[in-house]
Design a protein around this nucleic acid. Structure first.
Lengths: 406, 406
DNA sequence: CGCACTTTAGTACACAACGTAAGGAAGCGG
DNA sequence: CCGCTTCCTTACGTTGTGTACTAAAGTGCG
């Protein structure tokens, strides 16, 4: 129980200024002075240091305004790199990115499936080491490895890895410590929804002042929250379990023990189950008679919906309507002005979800009179979680503001 | 767009240390050094200053531990005072408190009813001036006036005052500026739910590290959120509109345009409406044949429920069950570990709400395996909002950490 | 009861980071 | 070319914290 103040170390100021440059794209020293509240003299010193570290570069001169033209400053994306890994049941995705979120190198392999945590993590470690070598980046520019997990945070910082995709069983496993022992770089572990959120924040150059949420859809729904330029983690780092928000008190029983949960009404498994009821559609999709995965079946339905198939559009719209209701509740609760939809579940028919949710929010949200609530599809694509995990490392190492934890 | 850094001014450190003393009750300098991360030398200097300002006092010596006994430090509650006003439709409550949240002086008058905002605020100003004189506090110790409103925050800092309690019509009115022009003290305006939350935080000596929510029930439900020792306000200061969380997608239409909202299912008006369906009960309560207020009728039902009347217990439990579902969703979303129920709506039968919500959360919440989610009744009583408004002023003036705004 | 030891509280000085003030550098316009 | 504006840097003062040391106040054992 120590360290809580320690006033404005250089570290802190540097990271705050770097964060301003990150979110601004291109800025001048004068802009920075104005927006940070520091004087030109201080900015000069900080910028000099950031230039020396190679974290930013001078890229030209601004428009003349009657005097000396200002030097333009930009983030230097190639100064540092990070690795992001998204571990999920069906697949594991690895990316090596630079500071702008651009993918330098990537790799996909099979997911944890029903492997024991120790087995899965061991394989991941090996693949990770190979990837780092293959990416041919200067080792000193690698700031760390971020891991996005579908699991949850347990007591004492232990991550719980899911080992059985059907029954949602979690098993305590010290993911971070195990990886840390094998890889000599900082390791950051977070859930996939939070990673997706920080990925949008970083790659989308979202200013630290904005509060927004990212809905991540893989097997189920999760929500990542970024407020005041930092991840909101709650009292035990288990924020964002929206899959069991109650949308229908008289609805169907959910495995969690509740009734009418978002997940049981709108998750891929629910959509697929409804499709199976429709024999014509089920035959068309090949859902009957053979063992298939829920994710693959859902992707098929979503693809047909995106193509305009009436019946499939109906199924996806039904799912989207439930999600929209949940987002409405969340928006009223947290007064958000931006919600981003990310993850593999939205890759095929994300537009339908955006349309339905957007309409609903702007029809019913309480703050609609003050400001619109924008609903957007992630621009990061299907590897949003992996990219986000990498961004999380960059964020926590380069612009830690006041967030501890590593 | 300025001021954002300015590293560790004396102000900031002083307020952080003061906040530690506030939330600790009694501490020694050594404790403070350990918990703040500062060295004994710095604590010595800061404490000297706080003692000189009269904000804290030395109250004796700690237990011997083999050396010189430590001097005990405490908050000096009488050093500063604040006024809190809760403005609601049926009544307006004024309190003058010291820094511990103890009520020095209070006053109740009629609410805004259907008065125009200008008329209501003018009357409040006059009553406020009388109260300050009557309280006989040293003017220099009055740090400001806090106002808790049921209304909402509009564009450009204007508060919206509700002018018609039945139709939920709001009218823009610059409450703060109007009061500020009349009273020469800092004025802080917030919604009643947020005030109740900060009141619990302050009077309950809750440490800044804790995240918790307060549900405030008057005409409808509202939620105030305190995270990281400060009020969470969202993007337009309209956090906590939980009254229109969707609990039943197929439920009854709500005036807001949605279906199955918490408010339409569980608010006092809904409970009273159900009671009116029961002719025996309606007669017993005198609900029929004369013009009565929803709030008064609800209070009657709640009182009978608290007394054990089976039918009324059923009605309240029904309302509590809906609220519990909403709290379940909120807890899963925000990973809270403490929820406090406050406001006039809970004064009669709050215990029933606590029991039902507590049971539901510990049965179904996703974090229950990691930590319990405590549901508690406010200890501040029916004037929670007014007390909270006063606390908000004390908080914003004495321990502003990094929150600007005034 | 005295003396060594422990713990708390305060002081003196060095260091770090920001602000102020002044001036140099680069460009504009007459 | 020269005055003027704007950008950027350097030199120095202020503020606040840490380190090291000292004073004060108590404990406990011989």
């Amino acid at each position: 129980m120590a360290k809580m103040l320690r006033g404005a170390t250089a570290q802190e100021t540097h990271s705050a200024i770097l964060d301003l440059i990150r979110s601004s794209g291109t800025v001048t020293r004068v802009d920075l002075a104005e927006r940070s509240g520091l004087t030109g003299a201080s900015i000069s010193r900080v910028v000099k240091r950031l230039l020396a570290d190679g974290l930013i570069i001078e890229t030209g001169y601004g428009d003349p305004t009657g005097g000396k033209r200002a030097t333009l400053l930009q983030f230097n994306p190639r100064a540092r790199h990070a690795v992001g890994i998204a571990v999920d049941t069906p697949s594991t995705t690895y990316v090596v990115t630079d500071m702008s979120g651009r993918v330098i190198e990537q790799l996909s392999s099979r997911g944890i499936g029903k492997d024991a945590p120790a087995t899965a993590v061991q394989r991941i470690t090996a693949e990770l080491e190979d990837l780092i070598v293959k990416a041919e980046i200067e080792p000193s520019t690698l700031v760390g490895v971020g891991v996005a997990l579908a699991g949850r945070q347990g007591r004492g910082g232990t991550r719980l890895l899911r080992t059985d995709s059907e029954k949602y069983a979690w098993e305590p496993f010290a993911v971070r410590d195990t990886l840390k022992a094998a890889i000599d770089h900082p390791i950051v572990v977070e859930n996939d929804s939070t990673c997706a959120a920080i990925g949008e924040f970083w790659a989308g150059k979202i200013p630290s002042a904005n509060d927004f949420a990212t809905v991540y859809l893989a097997a189920g729904f999760g929500l990542g929250l970024v407020t005041n330029g930092d991840v909101y983690r709650g009292s035990s780092s288990n924020v964002g379990e929206i899959g069991h928000m109650v949308l229908d008190v008289n609805g169907p029983m959910c495995w969690c023990g509740g009734q009418g949960c978002l997940e049981s009404l709108a998750a891929p498994a629910a959509v697929v189950a409804r499709a199976e009821q429709d024999t014509t559609l089920a035959d068309k999709l090949g859902l009957r008679g053979r063992q298939t995965s829920v994710r693959a079946d859902f992707a098929k339905i979503a693809r047909l919906a995106a193509g305009g198939d009436t019946r499939c559009v109906g199924l996806i719209e039904e799912s989207a309507t439930y999600l929209a209701k949940a987002l409405l509740s969340i928006t009223n609760l947290l007064d958000l002005d931006q919600i981003i939809l990310a993850g593999p579940g939205f890759s095929e028919a994300g537009d339908i979800y955006v349309r339905v949710a957007s309409t609903e929010l702007n029809r019913l949200s309480f703050v609609r009179a003050m400001h619109p609530t924008r609903v957007e599809l992630s621009k990061l694509g299907p590897s949003a979680a992996a990219l986000g995990a990498a961004s999380l490392v960059l964020h926590s190492q380069l612009t830690p503001h006041q967030n501890a934890r590593s």
